[in-house]
Design a protein around this nucleic acid. Structure first.
Lengths: 345, 345
DNA sequence: GTGAAAGCGCTAACAC
DNA sequence: GTGTTAGCGCTTTCAC
C-alpha cells in the first residue's frame, strides 16, 4: 500500500480511503490511486485489515461433512449468499461427533479472524461444536433440534415426516418401518414425525434400522427387510438410503412398490430419475444455507430479530409407494405372485 | 496475549514461544502459560500472526462449483489433508467461466493472507481462474488439460475413456455416441479418449450431444436418442448424465442394455445401485484432492519436485452395456422384440 | 479532503 | 531461557 501511495503521490491513508470508498477523496487523487493499484496489481492484506479494524469479511462454516448431499448443498447456499455480500467462507470440519474434534474445529475457526460462524447441525458433530463456540461470537445453527440461546434456521422435518408416514398408512399399510440416518441427537425430526404418526394412528412402532450416510449401507438392510413378511412399507431417513434399500429388496426378489413401498426424504436430484421414482419430502438445503448466512449477517450487523426460522417441507408423491399387496392388512407377498393393485402411478 | 502474559507473569514473547512450541521454555513458565490460556480461553489471532510472520496456515480452493459430485469430493480431499496438516481451507467460487468472475474469485482469495491456492480445473471457470493468479503464489491445479508452468495433478481420463469406448466397440457396436458434460476447454480427457478410440477403430465419429451438470438434462437427450435407430451405444460424460439418459431412453420404450448400451464416467456412489448397474470408469476425486494439497504443500515448503501427477483410472464393467441387438452391425431394435444377447451380466 | 501519528496482536531479532 | 525492542500493513483518530 505504501508502494501505491508513493506511485500515486498521495499518503497511505488516502489509498486506504479510496479502497474503502466510505470517505470522499478528490477525483484527481482517486484516479491516480486507482491507476497505481492497477499498475502494481495491488491487493490489500486481509490480515492487516482485520488486525487494524478488528473486523473481518470471513465467516466459518463448521460442519461434520462437506460432500454428502444435504451438507454440500447447504454449504453451497451459504457460500453463494456470502459471496454476494462480499464475504469469504472458510470450511472447518469436525469429523466425528467427539468433543476433541469439535473443540479442534472451533479452535481452527477461532484462530482465523472470523466475523461469525454457521454450524451445520445435521448430526452429532454439529451439536458438539455448538457447545464450544465462545459467547459473543455471532453463530447461526442450521437444522437440528431446536436449541435455546442459539439463532437457528431449520427445514421443517417432523410435520413432513408425519405426513409422509400418514400417507403410507392411508394407502393401507398396517405400519411403517423406519431406517434411520445418523442423527443429530437421540432422534431427528423425520424420525420424530414417523413415530408421532404411528402413535396417533395406533399402529405398532417397530424397532428402527440404522444406516450410515453411505447409500450402500441401505442395501443389506433392504435384503433383510425382504425376508420380514410383515414389512410392507419402509420410510428411509434419506433418499440415498432408500435407493440402497430398494436395491436390497429387489436383490431378494421383492418388488417396489408392489410388494414393499419405500419412501425417502430430501428429494435428492436423482430421486425423480430413480426406478421407481421416489416418493419423498423436499428439503431445500441450499435455501437453508442462504437463509443461514442472511440470518448470521443480521446478527453481525446487530439487526437480528429472528431467533428461529423454519422452512416448510412437502411430501412429493411419486411411484415408490403403493397400497400393500392384497389390500389392507392382509397377509401378502407370494414373492412370485401377480401384480398387486396400486402400482399404477 | 498480553492478558495471558500478565496472568502467567511472563512476557508476551514467552507466551508466543509456548504456543509455537519451537523454542524451549522452562517447564515452570510453560505450565503457567498453559494454565492462563485455559483460564481465559485464549485464541491467537490469525490475522496478527499472518501479519507479523508473513506466513499463513490457510489455503484457498478456487472452484466453479462446490456441490456437484466430483467437485465436492475433491474439496473434501483437499480439506481432509489440509486439516491433518493444520491448515484451514477457504472456498472461493468463480460461478461462471467469465473473466470477471475469475478475477473476482482470485481477488477474494488474495485479499486473505493465503499460503497457496488449489484450483479445480474441471471446467472453464478453473481455466479462467488460473490466468489471474499472480506469479509467486504457490498454485496447484487439479484435473483438466495439461498446462505448462503450472503444477498439476490429474485423474487419467483420456486413456480410460478410450478403453471404455473400445470396450463398447468390442462388444460389437458400430460406433459410440457421446454426451458431453461442460468441459474445461474445447474438450476434456474423456471426450478425447472417446474420439481417439473411434478414430483408431475407423468407426464413424457422430456429432456430440451436450448436457449440463444437472442429471435431468440427460433425460431429454435419452428420449431423442431413443428415436435414432442407429444409436446402439452411448458414452456419457459422467454417471449422473448417464442415469438421466437411461431414464429418457426407457421413457421411449428402449431397454438398457438390450436395445441401447449406456456407460458413464466417475463411478458415482449410486452407479452400482442404479438399475441397471452402470458400466463406468472410476475417478477418485477425494484422492485427487488429497494429492493436490500434498503437492501444494511441497511447493510452499519449497521441496516440490513433481510438476505433473496423473492417477490411473480403470474401466468398471457392470451391466449397462451389452452387445447390440441382433449382433454386430445389424439393424436393431424392434422396440418390442425379445431379449437380445449380452444382458446376462 | 488530506497527511501525520498511533496502534491493532503478534513474531523476530537482539541482547542478556 | 527470557525480556526488550521493532515492525508486519493496514485503519483510525486527530489536526489542519
Amino acid at each position: 500500500m505504501a508502494d501505491v501511495a508513493r506511485l500515486a503521490e498521495v499518503s497511505v491513508p488516502t489509498v486506504s480511503r479510496v479502497l474503502s470508498g466510505t470517505v470522499r477523496v478528490s477525483p484527481d487523487k482517486r484516479a491516480r490511486v486507482e491507476a497505481a493499484i492497477a499498475e502494481i496489481g495491488f491487493h490489500r492484506s486481509g490480515a492487516a485489515r482485520a488486525l487494524a479494524s478488528g473486523t473481518s469479511e470471513v465467516i466459518a462454516v463448521v460442519t461434520g461433512k462437506t460432500s454428502t448431499y444435504g451438507y454440500a448443498e447447504a454449504i453451497r447456499g451459504v457460500e453463494e449468499e456470502a459471496r454476494a455480500a462480499g464475504y469469504s467462507v472458510m470450511i472447518t470440519v469436525a469429523e466425528s461427533g467427539s468433543e476433541a474434534d469439535a473443540r479442534q474445529a472451533v479452535a481452527m475457526a477461532l484462530n482465523q479472524s472470523i466475523a461469525g460462524v454457521v454450524v451445520l447441525k445435521f448430526d452429532a458433530a454439529g451439536v458438539a461444536v455448538l457447545k464450544h463456540i465462545p459467547p459473543g461470537l455471532p453463530v447461526e445453527a442450521l437444522a437440528g433440534a431446536r436449541q435455546r440461546g442459539v439463532v437457528q434456521a431449520v427445514l421443517e422435518e417432523a410435520r413432513a415426516g408425519e405426513e409422509l408416514t400418514n400417507y403410507l398408512l392411508e394407502l393401507g399399510h398396517r405400519t411403517v418401518h423406519h431406517v434411520r440416518v445418523p442423527a443429530s441427537r437421540r432422534e431427528d425430526g423425520r424420525t420424530t414425525g414417523w413415530r408421532r404418526a404411528l402413535r396417533n394412528a395406533g399402529a405398532p412402532i417397530p424397532p428402527m434400522w440404522e444406516a450410515t450416510w453411505d447409500p450402500h449401507t441401505g442395501r443389506p438392510i433392504g435384503r433383510e427387510l425382504a425376508h420380514c413378511p410383515d414389512v410392507t412399507a419402509v420410510f428411509c431417513g434419506n433418499d440415498e438410503i432408500a435407493m440402497g434399500v430398494i436395491r436390497g429388496l429387489e436383490d431378494e426378489g421383492a418388488r417396489v412398490p408392489e410388494d414393499v413401498s419405500v419412501v425417502g426424504f430430501d428429494d435428492h436430484p436423482l430421486a425423480e430419475l430413480w426406478s421407481p421414482p421416489l416418493t419423498t419430502v423436499n428439503q431445500d438445503f441450499a435455501r437453508l444455507g442462504r437463509r443461514g448466512f442472511t440470518l448470521l449477517m443480521s446478527q453481525i450487523e446487530g439487526t437480528a430479530t429472528t431467533k428461529y426460522s423454519s422452512e416448510r417441507a412437502e411430501v412429493i408423491i411419486r411411484a415408490s409407494a403403493a397400497p400393500p399387496a392384497g389390500g389392507r392388512g392382509s397377509a401378502r407377498r407370494g414373492r412370485s405372485g401377480g401384480r398387486s393393485g396400486g402400482a399404477e402411478r
